[in-house]
Design a protein around this nucleic acid. Structure first.
Lengths: 327, 327
DNA sequence: CTGTTAGCGCCTTCAA
DNA sequence: TTGAAGGCGCTAACAG
């Protein structure tokens, strides 16, 4: 009868998710739960004999630590939240890829959240931290009002937050990003050296800090070649292909269209080029176009899109490591 | 002195993250913690008066429930794990986008994990469930050996898992995916109707179940037009652009190259087309190409890539809802 | 090096 | 409708 029950329990253990706890392991190994706990997290502090018995007991029982209990007790979740403006954008998803890899390699889990169109994204982010769901945030979304929350969270810009590919004004948190201003100036330099004097610009959405940096670089590039900045050659985009197509229509409608166009990202450049071609123009013969990001498909276009590379895998790697080092 | 301490504590509450607990709320509202708990999760069971006082106390204290404590007690995490083979692939990241939105709308959090090159991915997934990190999994990665774990997890294919855009043989879990076989047949039909009789195929990696379905559809399409299947016109890809380029070289090296090519995904089609063009061939004049997925850039190419659409937002939406309904 | 003990914050019986 | 009390599984003092 006893045996029968025991067998049943083993089956139930597998089938009904009666997960073994640290107590079961302790019993199997003939040690206290404290020793099991230590054997698992600070093996150095446990005798070799005990360590081995615990290891065996763990595999015998199939024990896996209950993260909820550990988080509650240790006030740490080993989880990092990645806040993105748009996961489906290949620029971000490539960075996310390397962030996730780095986070996983260091034994953390990755929680993600897309920008909600809904209310108070900054509260949602802070909520993840405060509700003990995540230990830190990698922020790829530049929400202006987040600054307040972050500052509130810790004195002296101390929140466990690393900013990647973004910039938030008035906040002095660790940041990993491309030199947008410099790269944009180089893009313009490239076009000017091809002989272009009327250079158009499809900008980032208004208010985007990166966009301001790229705008400054764009003007730097013009100045370096003695070209006067003409606001009529600048039109606002939103980082999506459709806005690139609209920009093409805008430029074609001008009395004096530009002969070259710098787009603040590749996706808009794609939309712009496809619209120009559908109107019968050739790129690069009629218009030279330069994008930004170097998303994967850029090199696979015919001919390939000229673009400013952002070292995305490296950005992700650095940001993730920086955050975990802080924690 | 008392006041002083109190003030200090309030400041510390903001600065040092001494998060208010349910006890603090209870004290503010002059009720027991049980009442607070009920007021928050089953408002119906609490008198209106108490409910209002609790609500006020919550906003006074800035209380946020501690998820770790709740998970420990309630054995539920309100978190879903999404397992992807490759986040940076725009096909998956677009689905992920809609999954995340749906999950968030239903009050859950989204944990992600990329396929590790490392050991035992199936154990890692099961571990997330068993370690009380996630309540369920949306699986977009068809790992053969996962079948065992899943079956182990619950009798009768009962694991809290929904499969999206994949198929695992011998497992009968809820699955959301495109009719790959039918869609592939349609692609071939399209090419045959253009007059092509030698149709090439860049396949999925060997062992991929979706790939087998698409392969069947490819042959169905040939049969429907009385074309005999010729294995020499089939070459294996791995869903990446580079393998599409290799396929182009392979086809060009044949004695009788195909005049049309069906690619198992758009990215490979991109690589193939760019390689063909770089060798001086025109698409679509010299070769007709059809892709699969309809990733965003497909429509922005010049001319646009013909492709079989997968309704990705809908797939994500359905999969996420199906899983949460199960939970 | 190891065990005992005391909670972490929450939810949920059980009684009133 | 409400409160008191116990315990989810774990870790971190504190002793020994």
């Amino acid at each position: 009868m006893k045996r029968h029950n025991q067998a049943n329990e083993e089956i139930r253990g597998l089938v009904d998710q009666k997960h073994p706890t640290i107590q079961d392991v302790a019993r199997h190994a003939n040690v206290s739960t404290a020793t099991v706990s230590r054997a698992l997290s600070q093996p150095g502090q446990v005798s070799k004999a005990a360590r081995e018995r615990v290891t065996r007991a763990v595999s015998e029982t199939g024990y896996i630590v209950n993260q909820a209990a550990r988080s509650l007790r240790a006030r740490t979740t080993r989880t990092i939240l990645v806040a993105l403006p748009d996961i489906s954008n290949p620029f971000f998803s490539t960075i996310l890829d390397s962030i996730e890899r780095t986070i996983a390699d260091r034994g953390y889990a990755t929680l993600i959240t897309n920008r909600g169109r809904g209310s108070k994204p900054h509260e949602r982010l802070a909520g993840h931290l405060r509700s003990n769901r995540a230990d830190g945030i990698i922020l790829m979304d530049g929400l202006a009002d987040l600054a307040d929350v972050l500052r509130l969270y810790g004195p002296g810009d101390t929140a466990p937050v690393v900013i990647a590919c973004e910039a938030i004004e008035n906040v002095n948190l660790p940041t990993v990003k491309t030199d947008n201003q410099g790269a944009s100036a180089i893009a313009v330099d490239h076009l000017a050296k091809l002989g272009h004097r009327r250079i158009g610009h499809v900008t980032s959405p208004a208010g985007n800090v990166l966009g301001r940096e790229r705008g400054r670089g764009f003007r730097d590039g013009l100045i370096a070649h003695g070209i006067e900045f003409d606001p009529i050659l600048e039109t606002e985009g939103d980082f999506k292909a459709e806005s690139g197509a609209r920009a093409a229509q805008y430029f074609l409608g001008l009395d004096h269209p530009p002969s070259a166009i710098f787009c603040d990202n590749d996706i808009m450049a794609l939309g712009l080029i496809s619209e120009l071609r559908s109107k019968g123009y050739s790129v690069p013969d009629d218009f030279s176009v330069v994008g930004f990001d170097d998303i994967e498909v850029a090199a696979r276009l015919s001919p390939p899109l000229t673009t400013m590379r952002q070292a995305r895998p490296r950005i992700g790697f650095l940001a993730a490591n920086a955050l975990i080092d802080i924690l």
